[in-house]
Write a protein that binds this DNA or RNA. Structure first.
Lengths: 114, 114
DNA sequence: CAATTGTTTCCATAAAACTAGAATAGTGGA
DNA sequence: TCCACTATTCTAGTTTTATGGAAACAATTG
């Protein structure tokens, strides 16, 4: 992931409503969620929701797939993992220190996160 | 990590100069870097640098330790890993899918990142 | 075709963030 | 004490972003 893409992704996620939308889609997984469904769950007016969804799509964090009258939004897991890789890349100049815990630890044992 | 902390961290990182500062400190590791050193490397005026450093400290992503006339800034690796955990937590509702690559893959083999 | 439903675009207002010169404060050396 | 140096705070101007009602658009249903 390029720096400019990482900035776009981080800027998009650095907002309460957009982070909530993204997290909702991450938990939803590949099945995704419909736009109206997201709006109902988060209590966001249509116009505002559409604005934030567009921002997330533009940042490459989610994708939109029209299905008739509905639009299904899905998290872009590749972008998420790319962002994580960007943040941690070459950490400690390549000499892992005690202070610099393994990224793998982000998922604690027993945690079902992927 | 709480949602409010994740938003603060993501907002802080969603800016070109702050992301550059944070990445510099991540690569520097526990040794950290002096404020002026960072300003020289990134070509940012003092007042602007100080503003962004304060934002990062406030977001919990870095720490400041005065050393005489100088101030040493260090990345807060625990916060970084906490943020990554927040983003990926309960992904795919706990049923990892093919689309949802393991976070561990963020570090490709041979990559010295921590 | 008209009505209905889901979604987006338009637009004006409001709020927040960015920038950097100038002034200020703290430290260490002469 | 005075000075040079490092860093921060103050301040003001500029830019960017967020919000949501209203209107427009698209697709299904009657």
């Amino acid at each position: 992931m390029e720096t400019i893409d990482a900035i776009a992704a981080l800027t998009a996620l650095g907002h309460a409503k957009r982070l909530a939308i993204f997290r909702l889609l991450v938990v939803a997984g590949p099945a995704g969620r419909m736009a109206g469904d997201i709006g109902d769950e988060l209590g966001v007016p249509g116009a505002t929701l559409s604005f934030h969804l567009k921002e997330l799509v533009h940042a490459g964090l989610i994708t939109a797939e029209p299905q008739g009258r509905f639009v299904c939004y899905r998290a872009e897991f590749e972008a998420m993992n790319g962002l994580i890789a960007y943040l941690t890349h070459n950490c400690c100049a390549g000499s892992p220190q005690a202070e610099c815990a393994p990224v793998a630890a982000a998922c604690s044992p027993g945690d079902a996160c992927c």
